[in-house]
């Protein structure tokens, strides 16, 4: 399979297999008008299988979202067709307006203009909770 190299943009590599579509959705890549390539289940010496996303646009994206979905992913910044930078990811302390709280009793379900904020409550288990009601963030149910 041949995917053209990108000129100016990002390559998000080493995404755990199956994670690319979560990132596609949460980063709103479907709304971008540039070339976006998603490679699923590519062979990987380190992971066995991995996903890769290539974004042919210099526009900034929220690295915190990538860290939330998969802190082991790597982000390569491409400029003029060459690798210009490698960005290290970590679990962000907060993610804002990325997920919606699924707790029907949460104030965010009724209060207009309130940011949807989740905070890192347990780094070891990668657990995020709603700032308001402390319900656990549920990535796969926010489709």
């Amino acid at each position: 399979m041949n995917i053209d190299s990108i000129k100016n943009g990002l390559v998000i590599d080493h995404i755990r297999a199956g994670g690319a579509m979560d990132l596609y959705r949460l980063l709103h890549l479907g709304d971008m008008d540039c070339t976006v390539a998603i490679i699923k289940n590519a062979p990987s010496a380190k992971l066995g299988r991995k996903d890769i996303i290539k974004i042919d646009s210099p526009k900034d994206i929220d690295l915190g979202v990538i860290g939330f979905v998969d802190p082991d992913a790597t982000v390569n910044v491409i400029r003029d067709g060459k690798l210009a930078d490698k960005r290290k990811l970590d679990l962000p302390e907060r993610i804002v307006n990325v997920l919606k709280c699924r707790n029907p009793r949460c104030i965010t379900t009724v209060e207009p203009g309130l940011d949807q904020v989740f905070f890192l409550s347990d780094k070891a288990t990668h657990t995020y909770r709603c700032l308001y009601c402390e319900a656990r963030a549920e990535l796969n149910k926010n489709k």
Binding site: N103, C106, T108
Partner: peptide
Amino acid sequence: RHPKEGAPLA
């Protein structure tokens, strides 16, 4: 007092 969780924080 509010029935919605997190209302006082908001």
